[in-house]
Each structure stands twice: as C-alpha cells, then as structure tokens.
C-alpha cells in the first residue's frame, strides 16, 4: 500500500460514493472498497491501467478528463479524488470547480513546487527541478501547471472554497513538525480536502 493512498483513505468517510480521477491501476479504490466499503468509479486513460482495473473488478471508465466531466451529475458523489494529477490538466482551476460540482468534497494531492530543493534548482543552479520525485525534463513533463502549497491555498481562497483539512508531507508521505510549520518550504507533497 502506497503511503499517499493510506493517507487519503484516512480522509474518506466509510460507505462514501467516490470518484477517483486518474485512478491508475485502481489501487486506491481497491483499498477504499476493502477498508471503507466505498462504492464508485475510477477514471483512467491508460490502456494497461484500465485492463488491470477490469481484472481486479474495480469499476473503471475510460475517459479523457481534459475533455470535460459533463457526463457526471451535480453532487452525484460524496468525494471526488485527484491524486498527483491536478498539475497535469489544461485548466486545474476549472477542474477544481468541476470536482466540487460533481462531489460534495474534493481531495487533491500535488507535488509542492515551492519545496526548498526545487528552489535551489531554479534559484541557484538556474535549471528546472529534476529529481527522483519529478523525473522529467521541462519539455517532456506531463506536469504543465506546477504550483506551490501557497498557490493552491490562494486559489481556494480566491474561489471561496473551504479548506476542510490539509496536510504537508515529505516524499515518503510522513509529516513532521517542520513540514507542518513551513509547508510551502518543506513539504514535497501537499494534500487538501476542500468543499464549497
């Protein structure tokens, strides 16, 4: 079990109806079905991932999230989750609106671009960050809308969204007193639960 999935799972109420955007091989939904008795669907675009979900019996729908989520009813889900993918979409802000139209709550995790190591890469070395955690070059990265912990918090504020809960954790998803104290500088992954 990946640590981030464990963490998200703690934030999902039992028996919820869940939509997992970019569900990968269905690991989170599988975990949530088993431990939280949730029902719901994963959205995925990758063929191998889709077939893995089908084989595991995880309900998966092949859909390009960038083409919109208009096929889902208003407030049809208790929680809409997007783990480590928000920065990969064309308009994260509009996607966030959609998540909260479809779901009562949204859980989002994303890499914090404000982490001190990224700042060193850019500020001292003068290069886009490249790490085990962000293993892409600027030209081939799927991460087209990086943001910092603070940027996301500001977006929520600007949209008048309520941050129900947040966590700032290191690469292994552990939280420390320093990541909690200065999340924008010390967290590698940011996790937010928001509602309208």
């Amino acid at each position: 079990m990946r640590a981030d999935l464990e963490l998200i799972s703690d934030w999902v109420a039992p028996n919820s109806r869940v939509l997992d955007l970019g569900c990968g091989n269905g690991a989170l939904l599988e975990h949530l079905q088993e431990h939280k008795h949730v029902t719901g669907y994963g959205l995925e675009f990758d063929a191998d991932n889709i077939n893995q979900c089908i084989e595991k019996g995880i309900p998966v729908l092949e859909q390009d999230i960038d083409q919109g989520l208009t096929n889902f009813d208003d407030q049809g889900f208790d929680v809409v989750i997007m783990a480590h993918a928000l920065q990969q979409f064309r308009r994260p802000d509009l996607l966030l609106d959609e998540m909260l139209r479809i779901g009562k709550e949204a859980i989002i995790t994303f890499p914090n671009f404000g982490h001190w190591r990224n700042r060193i890469h850019l500020g001292i070395k003068g290069h886009m960050p490249f790490s085990e955690f962000l293993p892409y070059n600027w030209y081939d990265t799927p991460n087209i809308h990086f943001c910092t912990f603070n940027d996301f918090r500001d977006l929520c504020q600007a949209k008048g969204l309520k941050v129900e809960r947040w966590a700032a954790v290191d690469g292994q998803l552990r939280d420390h007193w320093w990541t909690r104290l200065m999340p924008n500088l010390f967290s590698e992954t940011a996790i937010f639960k928001v509602s309208r």
Binding site: Y41, I50, I54, V60, L61, E62
Partner: peptide, 19 residues
C-alpha cells in the same frame, strides 16, 4: 455506448467502460 455507461453510473451500478 457512453449513454449506457452514464445511465449505469447514474443508477450506481458496477460498470467498467473501455473505448
């Protein structure tokens, strides 16, 4: 096909869809 999928999702059924 997606009309069927959407209706199944709306009624909360166990469905997987691949294109």
């Amino acid at each position: 096909s997606e009309e069927i999928v959407d209706a199944l999702v709306r009624s909360g059924k166990h469905v997987s869809y691949t294109k």
